[in-house]
Amino acid sequence: MLELRDVHVVFDGFRALDGVDLTVPEGELRFLIGPNGAGKTTLIDVITGLTRPTAGSVRFGGHDLVGRKEHRIVRLGVGRTFQTSVVFEELTVVENLDLAASFRRPLWSLARRRRGVSEAVAEALARTGLEELAERSAGVLSHGQRQWLEIGMLLAQRPRLLLLDEPVAGMSGDERERTGELLTQIAADHTVIVVEHDMEFLRRHASTVTVLHEGKVLVEGSVEQVSADPRVQEVYLGRRSTDAVGNRP
């Protein structure tokens, strides 16, 4: 369903992505890992139209994504979250979700007031467990709750492909646990790509893993295959595994 072919991104001579091929079939939960600066976020930027690749093609469900405007890509059914979560603090939780859910309505029909909670919003509230906080302003949410709200906003849009950039970074152990459950649930009926560092988290939730290193795909396979691969151990696990453990609060 998602297919990247020989994607290159060059920033001022620096090769952030250097010939990436990636295929993600419908319904898969794919993890994307790699040391800092490997190009994971850049890869998501390329898929969602934030960064234009210097060369290569990105196809999604039969559409060419390169050169398409960001909001048009979203309308094709590709949703993303950001490494640093961005929710609208002046709006309430339910307003945030409703805004996300209404994106297919024509602009003029937005001029009416919202009455009640739509089905998509209610479902997103339930899945993320934010019902209690529905009427609170998003500005008062904790870091973890914000991430859930972001994921909820994505769900309310009913996308076909979800791209989550480090959704559990900075979360407490409990929050990680809940996010993991949420992910497994979502993955049951969506195609999902998750960028994540934490090996523990990976072992528990991942099916297929793609390792990115210096803008190239290093290995792709199951968690066991990948963590057994000597090249991965050298560039990533060897250096990062202590970090990943150290990261945990």
């Binding site: 969602t48 002046e90 709006l91």
Partner: peptide
């Protein structure tokens, strides 16, 4: 609501599928 969202996070709004 959309207008306020555009004010506070124009780029984020773009990734919600609005122009």
């Amino acid at each position: 609501r959309l207008l306020v969202a555009v004010r506070d996070g124009e780029d984020r709004v773009r990734f919600l599928g609005y122009d």
